[in-house]
């Protein structure tokens, strides 16, 4: 880790100001992924803007009426996992489940929601500074010609990383929106709001970044839509070992069931693509139908249609199909 300067920010606006002031300054929340990247020599920012010193950024505001829950960017995974505002609401259960299943107890106490969304891929070629891969500005994806057992089965033709954020998978299924802020030229704070799908960047668009955050821009809030009547969600992941391990596959689903039929469905796959992977064909297969075993099976088949595994990760196709079936079943039986 190279030496760096530090600014302990007192407020979000002062943090935004500080970020704008120094070239290459990087915001630090929990610091879990950032310190890892810095220790590995993947990142060497000259200045860190510390968001942990800002009070109130970890607040979780429960949904009320037409207003959905609003999550502070510095809410920890442990807070999300234990929050009654999430775990106690069937529509939001997937997020609490994703947070509870992530990493280790220690990491969940440290890692923040915004940090989790912005963490960089765990691809072992990307994480080794001596591999000058596409994502680091090189001209080759080493996973294509190397060991790709834990890599992408969708959108993997350019760079085969999988997106590492469990929260991103769940939030994508829940239709969350991200509020982003940056210091404007006039000194005022500029705010924009994005759907999850518009936040993440596929390699075909820009292989060197995972999201659209501009320099000096921060996630200032995560907004969930208000729970709908009959809406329930679920998140499932499968790891090789059941203690700390990165998932082989993840699925988050959100279903709104009215009058015995699925009125709205979202199915998002994780650990299969460089971005949270929306399974639109599966969603289309579900909407307007009454759920039964055959439908669930058909949706799972549809979810993996078009998967294009590499040499070592073909197992992910049947594995994730099973997870889709299970997640749908879990969501349908939940109250």
């Amino acid at each position: 880790m190279k030496p760096f300067e530090l600014v302990n920010a007192s407020s979000l606006s002062s943090a935004l100001g500080a970020l704008g002031q120094a070239k290459g300054a990087v915001a630090k929340a929990g610091g879990v992924d950032l310190l890892d990247l810095m220790k590995e020599g993947i990142s060497a920012p000259p200045r860190l803007i510390n968001l942990r010193t800002i009070a109130g950024l970890d607040k979780i505001a429960a949904a009320s009426g037409e207003q959905g829950a609003v999550l502070g960017p510095l809410a920890t995974l442990a807070q999300l996992a234990e929050s009654k505002a999430l775990a106690g609401v069937p529509a939001y259960a997937a997020l609490a489940e994703a947070a509870a299943a992530a990493a280790t107890p220690q990491i969940r106490n440290m890692a923040t929601l915004a940090g989790n969304l912005c963490q960089r891929p765990r691809c072992w070629y990307f994480r080794d500074a001596d591999y000058h891969c596409l994502r680091k500005g090189g001209n080759k994806c080493f996973a294509h010609s190397g060991d790709n057992a834990f890599h992408a089965i969708f959108e993997n033709d350019k760079c085969a990383v999988v997106h590492p954020s469990a929260a991103a998978v769940a939030l994508s299924a829940l239709g969350a929106k991200l509020e982003l802020q940056r210091a404007g030229k006039d000194g005022k704070v500029a705010t924009r709001e994005l759907a999850m799908a518009d936040f993440f960047v596929a390699p075909s668009k820009d292989v060197q970044r995972e999201n659209v955050l501009a320099a000096g821009e921060l996630i200032s809030a995560v907004k969930l839509p208000a729970p709908q009547a009959g809406q329930r969600s679920a998140y499932i992941k499968q790891k090789q070992k059941q203690s700390f391990d990165w998932p082989l596959g993840e699925v988050a689903v959100s279903l709104t069931v009215t009058a015995g039929k699925i009125a709205a469905a979202s199915v998002v796959l994780g650990s299969v693509a460089p971005i949270p992977w929306r399974a639109k064909k599966a969603e289309a297969a579900l909407v307007g139908k009454a759920a039964d075993e055959a439908l669930i099976k058909a949706a799972a088949e549809a979810a993996l249609a078009g998967a294009d595994p590499l040499d070592d990760n073909g197992y992910k196709v049947p594995l994730v199909k099973a997870l889709v079936r299970r997640a749908l079943t879990q969501a349908l039986v939940s109250k």
């Binding site: 030496p3 300067e5 530090l6 600014v7 302990n8 007192s10 002062s14 500080a18 200045r47 010193t53």
Partner: peptide
């Protein structure tokens, strides 16, 4: 130094 807000501190002597 570590308790100061919005000031640049470090890299050393914090």
């Amino acid at each position: 130094a570590a308790a100061q807000r919005d000031a640049v501190i470090g890299p050393q002597g914090v």
